[in-house]
């Protein structure tokens, strides 16, 4: 289907670069940590349900961070929860990616001005790759965020290092 379709009818040899092969393998099966915090988690669950299927992109929810590639931070991160988010991020093995879903985890959301217990954006504790705006974002918006992440992975280089955790 697609990449492998015509290749095997002539001969069984596939020619590509290691970078392309590894990047293609990584982006086609991104397993996510089931980490839903607040209202955006319901839209994430609706995206994994049958109407807006997440599974056709290869994304499966895993219960443990030690077996997953991507963490979708969906919902408001409070000060009490921020330390636990950092610990979960550090438990994930490399290469790992972060999608920040919803305006509460992008920048604090509707609670930016008077929230004394709200962390104004999850990028104050972990580095973020893709931001998906909305309150809550529609399932189609989350799928677009996932496609942008896949594009980012497609042009990654395995020799150059990414930014380290600040």
């Amino acid at each position: 289907m697609g990449l492998l379709d015509k290749e095997f009818s002539d001969n069984n040899i596939l020619i590509t670069t290691t970078e392309n092969l590894f990047n293609w393998a990584r982006l086609s099966s991104l397993w996510q940590v089931g980490f839903g915090l607040a209202c955006c988690a319901i839209e994430m669950m609706a995206t994994s349900a049958s109407h807006y299927d997440f599974d056709r992109f290869g994304v499966i929810p895993r219960p443990s961070p030690r077996q997953s590639d991507v963490i979708i931070v969906s919902g408001t991160v409070t000060l009490k929860m921020a330390l636990r988010v950092k610990r979960l991020y550090e438990q994930m093995p490399d290469p790992k990616y972060v999608i920040s879903m919803g305006s509460c985890s992008n920048c604090g959301g509707p609670y930016w001005e008077h929230g004394y217990h709200v962390l104004k954006g999850v990028d104050r504790v972990i580095p973020v790759d893709v931001y998906v705006p909305g309150c809550p974002p529609r399932p189609e918006a989350l799928l677009e965020g996932l496609l942008k992440l896949q594009e980012k992975i497609r042009y990654e280089s395995i020799t150059k290092k990414n930014n380290e955790i600040v």
Binding site: L79, W112, Y116, V125
Partner: peptide, 20 residues
């Protein structure tokens, strides 16, 4: 105690900046 009317927000809590 946060809900008192004269409560002041701290600047940092455990290394994280609290105001926007």
């Amino acid at each position: 105690h946060p809900l008192k009317k004269d409560y002041q927000n701290p600047e940092f809590y455990q290394g994280m900046r609290v105001p926007y």
